[in-house]
């Protein structure tokens, strides 16, 4: 176990490991998303209340789940970086951030499009939407802080601290927004009160979520390799890659 972690800390070893792992994840992501898309768009039955507009759920839920998972992954990577000083962990956190921000934005975008036919409005200060919006700003803060420091060790540590502070705050923000929401407006529509989905509806959703996870893993591995090249470009083994 320990030797494995120490080996992971070596950029060269990690580079080749990522190279070996990533094709599988790309293929899995492609297959899962393709199957999930066709199934969910064409084969799953329409919802008895929302008709076909509910098909947005198949992109909305995966991006919303990823938006949270990516932040947690970033926080884990940051903690590993701060505790064991493994630079690979910081590189991983670096490459994850833009994808997480994009997923958060997509969750908001598809949620707002879905809101028009179901709630009758583009935006409502619903607890989940508001919490997502705040999370988007947390992502932007992390990216902006890294941008301000540039790619150096000091910036990496500062971003790691901010990410950890953010991840501690996410549940607090979430529950306070829920509390605020119940205080201000009675719930008009809640998705959770609907009857449980039939299997023909949730199976494609599960496939899409898994597909998005595989895509995230594949993209992170791929961009981690890029980041290793960028930061280790002075070493001989990286320069040998250009031959």
């Amino acid at each position: 176990m320990w030797t494995f972690i120490h080996k992971l800390g070596s950029p060269k070893w990690c580079y080749s490991l990522c190279g070996r792992l990533q094709p599988g994840f790309w293929i899995a992501a492609l297959l899962l998303i393709a199957v999930g898309s066709v199934w969910s768009l064409a084969y799953s039955p329409p919802d008895y209340q929302m008709g076909n507009s509910y098909r947005i759920i198949y992109v909305h839920v995966p991006s919303a789940i990823l938006a949270q998972s990516v932040f947690v992954s970033m926080a884990i990577a940051s903690a590993v970086f701060l505790i064991w000083k493994i630079k690979i962990a910081d590189m991983a956190a670096t490459v994850m951030a833009p994808f997480g921000a994009a997923m958060t934005f997509l969750g908001l975008f598809s949620g707002s499009l879905w809101g028009v036919p179901t709630w009758g409005t583009w935006w409502t200060w619903d607890a989940r939407l508001t919490a997502m919006l705040i999370q988007l700003f947390l992502y932007i803060g992390v990216i902006a802080l890294r941008g301000a420091y540039g790619r150096n060790d000091q910036g990496a540590k500062a971003v790691a601290v901010l990410t950890l502070v953010g991840v501690v705050n996410i549940p607090i923000i979430k529950y306070s927004v829920v509390w605020w929401n119940t205080l201000h407006q009675p719930a008009t529509f809640t998705l959770t009160s609907r009857p449980a989905m039939p299997e023909s509806m949730w199976m494609p959703l599960l496939i899409m979520v898994l597909g998005f996870y595989c895509f995230f893993t594949a993209l992170t591995l791929y961009r981690l390799r890029n980041e290793i090249i960028r930061r280790e470009s002075r070493t001989r083994w990286v320069q040998a890659l250009a031959e």
């Binding site: 329409p46 008709g51 076909n52 507009s53 098909r55 947005i56 909305h60 994009a102």
Partner: peptide, 26 residues
Amino acid sequence: MGGYAKYVWPAWGLTLCALIGFAVWA
């Protein structure tokens, strides 16, 4: 899409475009 085309397709379109965009960018 049962009259919901202008909501379903943009949501799906942008999401899939973003995924492809990330892959191309990488």
